[in-house]
Structure formats: C-alpha cells, structure tokens
Simulated assay, not measured.
Amino acid sequence: MTDQRPQYGELATPEEQRRAAGLPPLGEIPPVPPMMQLSAPEPVAQAPNPGRSRPVDRFVTIGLLAYGLVNVVITGLSYLDLPTVMNESMKILGIDGEFSNFAQGKLWGTIAAALLVIGWALTAALAIKRLRRGKVAWWVPLVGAVVTMAVVSACIAVPMFNDPAFMAYLEQMSGG
C-alpha cells in the first residue's frame, strides 16, 4: 500500500503548515514592532541619532570644516606662488633683501598646497564618519588643522632656510 498523504508543505495550506510545525495560526500572531523586523539575531547597540542627540557638535564641526575649507583654498592658492609670499613675509619681518630661492620655493609651495588639500580632505572624512556614528566630532577639525599645518610648515621651511637673505637675517639676529 502506498502512502498517499502529501509530504510536508507539498499540498498543505499555510495554516496546515503552521499547525504541523507547531506554530500558532496566522491570526493569533502579535504584530512585530518595526524596530524588531530588521534586527539581527543578537542584540546590536543602536547609535544615537546624531541629528537629534548632538546638534551643537554637528553645527560646530561643520562650521570648523567650512572655515578650514575657505582657509585651505586661500592659503593653498598663495602657496602656489610661494616666492611672492616669502618676499612679503620677509618685508613684514624687516629682512633686507629678497627671496631668491625660486626653484625650491615653487616646488615646496606646490607640495605644501597639495598637503593642505589632502589634510583637509582626511580631516573632513574622519569628522563626517564620527558624526554619522553619533560620536563627538568637534575636535577632529582642530586636531586635523594642527597636524596639517605642522607638516605644511615643515615644507615651507625648506626653501626658507635655504634662502641666502633669510639665513643672513638669522645670523644677524643670533649675533654671529
């Protein structure tokens, strides 16, 4: 004699399938809260909504990044003509003579301008990443500016310390 009963799920209705699986009928299932529908099997810590939880941090961070961007554009463009910037700086400091280390000035000015842009971009990316995760981010643009300016200042120092007029000024200041 052959077993003519259908296999599990083969011809059974959804209600029969649920009953055979030991589940309650569909009408008796309480609705699932929207937050639980997409949750993982293990509890996951929910990040606070950064738009509501830290509006002042968000405002300050974005304000600092905007200020930094304006600064990067203006300063970066001036660094592309570093010999002119060095001449003006030497006049302001009262240094006799003119900046004459043009080749290094152009090279290191271009490098400094590029590093300004890269430094700002990395700073902005890190700050935005922290904002999206709901973490405090106002300090990121400040630290990014300090680190970037330290590197850029080292780049600017190379042609400056290799300029004869500037070195003569330093020797005069040291009494030597």
Rank of each mutant, 00 (worst) to 15 (best):
G109A: 11
S89H: 14
N101H: 07
T123D: 03
A124D: 06
N101G: 05
Q104Y: 02
G94Q: 08
G94W: 12
I111V: 11
E98G: 08
A127P: 07
A125C: 13
E88P: 13
L122G: 06
W120M: 00
G97F: 09
A114N: 12
L107E: 15
T110A: 14
A113F: 15
Q104E: 12
I111K: 00
F102M: 01
M90A: 11
K106G: 14
A114Q: 06
A124Y: 00
L93S: 12
I95Y: 04
S100H: 05
I111N: 10
G97A: 06
G109S: 10
V117W: 09
L126P: 10
A124I: 07
L126Q: 09
W120V: 01
I128F: 08
Q104L: 13
T123E: 02
G94P: 08
L116G: 03
I95G: 00
I92F: 15
A114I: 01
I118G: 00
K106D: 14
R130V: 10
G97K: 10
K129M: 06
I92W: 15
N87P: 05
L131H: 02
M90G: 01
K129L: 09
W108H: 08
G97I: 13
A127N: 04
N101M: 12
G119F: 12
G109K: 01
G94E: 11
K129S: 11
I92A: 15
I92R: 15
I118R: 11
G97P: 02
V117D: 01
N87S: 15
S100L: 01
G97R: 12
G105L: 01
I92G: 13
N87L: 08
I95W: 04
G94C: 12
F99N: 05
T110V: 05
R130I: 12
W120F: 06
I95S: 00
I92M: 14
R130W: 03
F99G: 00
L107I: 09
A121Y: 09
D96T: 14
G97H: 08
L131S: 05
T123C: 10
T110S: 15
G119E: 00
G105E: 04
L93Y: 15
T123F: 08
L122P: 02
W120S: 01
F99H: 01
D96W: 01
